[in-house]
Design a protein around this nucleic acid. Structure first.
Lengths: 189, 189
DNA sequence: TCAGCTATCGTTAGTAC
DNA sequence: AGTACTAACGATAGCTG
């Protein structure tokens, strides 16, 4: 989009790809925030950077608390205006039933793709999880993760601990680490 | 960004705001996909449109399966090139230990904000969950959801079933439905 | 590696239908 | 409401220090 038009394919050169990622990530996050302000929509973008296994950038944590604080500071009158009464809610539930039915179709399709995802997690480094998919995968991942963690612990006994990392962090490994662990497990079996 | 520069504030006119939302949402999703392709990062954007309480737009479900299918269709040689061997993985783990330590700090901070979120879920309709936050919330939500579901079932007995929705969908309610249910529960207690 | 710098490109606000 | 158009604007690829 600048001095030269680039083709929409994986950038091979490492430096160029990382520069692009940094620039575009910044631009993307800006646009997410702008949209949230301009149109008052809850919006969130998540980008997992490779080789940077931190939970990652997301315009959410600060933004979330800000939005929630705004709601909290609303007057009680404003709040009650936003709250529907009991009867209204029941009627709304009826009107929404057909919506629900459509939604279950979506859930069904998601379960299918979830099965595919789970299959690939064990052997690939390429992952793209949506919020919904993550939710349904969490339980299954936790089971898988336990077995993998045991394997990791076994392997830990085979290598010396590095000088600057004497802290034993292995008793509490977060979900986002499991991708590495699984690759490790996959490579050893 | 066009005929006239607009100030970064909530757009008051309903038609103009909706038009902007539609255009920018499209552009945003395009950029998310581009970034995923150009830099091979897992990326995801979620936008909740007002008055449209459906699970919402996300460039993930089709994209996920597409990306994974691409990976599957890679030759076995290409796959093995992407796989690291056992020893390399162990060395990589050592190098990444300090990364992990930093990560646990972040997790701690996230737990704090999660507590705030959970508090607000019960009483507000304003939600903005990141992937990580959703992951950690799922377990707690499932407990909450069970209690809410029982309440819903009680209420179901007080209203007649609508003609076009005779399907009993209440035995299998997805996570994304719980927001409504909780509002309902909150309004009735 | 990182932070400017711009030419150039992509996005989009307003408009017309 | 939706599409099509286009002038203007913002984002950014490649460069430089």
């Amino acid at each position: 989009m600048a001095r030269k038009k680039i083709k929409l394919v994986w950038i091979n050169e490492d430096a160029r790809r990382r520069a692009t990622l940094k620039k575009r990530r910044k631009g993307l996050m800006k646009k997410v925030k702008e949209l949230a302000i301009l149109c008052d929509v809850r919006s969130c973008a998540i980008i997992y950077c490779p080789h940077d296994p931190k939970p990652e950038v997301c315009p959410a944590i600060e933004e979330t608390t800000r939005v929630l604080n705004d709601f909290r500071s609303l007057s009680e009158m404003e709040k009650s205006k936003k709250m529907m009464n009991h009867a209204a809610f029941l009627q709304q539930r009826i009107a929404k039933r057909h919506e629900h039915i459509r939604q279950y179709d979506l859930e069904k399709r998601q379960l299918e793709s979830t099965a595919l995802l789970l299959e690939c997690i064990a052997g690939s480094s390429i992952l793209l999880l949506s919020t919904e998919e993550l939710g349904s995968l969490t339980v299954q991942l936790n089971h898988k993760a336990k077995a993998v963690q045991e394997r990791i612990n076994e392997l830990q006994n085979l290598i010396p601990a590095p000088p600057q990392a004497s802290v034993d962090e292995d008793h509490n490994v977060g979900l986002h680490n499991y991708y590495e662990e699984m690759q490790c497990s996959a490579a050893t079996t």
